[in-house]
């Protein structure tokens, strides 16, 4: 299974990513930082090797943050080519 997508994180999701990266600015496993822009947004690549969802949800504590992480999940699943295991019967 391959989960690859390039997504842009802004506002609350960018804040969560900052929190997950910590003071050393190390992206969570599964995230590759492609670009960080002055407007506070990040462009990131997500691979199937790690679990960016876990990294972000671990640092999400409020319902707004939890909901934002779900939005990321939705956008990644929409963008990825081979996320859903099965197509038969759809």
């Amino acid at each position: 299974m391959k989960v690859e997508a390039e997504v842009r994180l802004c506002s609350e999701l960018a804040d969560l990513l900052k929190k997950a990266m910590g003071p050393d600015n190390v992206p969570p496993k599964g995230f590759e930082l492609r670009d960080s822009l002055e407007d506070g947004c990040y462009t990131i690549a997500i691979s199937g090797d790690g679990d960016p969802h876990k990294a972000l949800l671990t640092v999400a504590n409020t319902i707004d943050e939890i909901t934002r992480v779900a939005e990321l999940v939705e956008s990644v699943i929409r963008a990825a080519d081979e996320v859903i295991l099965y197509k038969a019967g759809d």
Partner: peptide, 18 residues
């Protein structure tokens, strides 16, 4: 989180399947 937004379950389904 899955009860708040089930997209979290979608992500975990990838882990389960793999």
């Amino acid at each position: 989180a899955a009860a708040i937004n089930p997209s979290h379950a979608l992500w975990a389904s990838l882990t389960f399947r793999s």
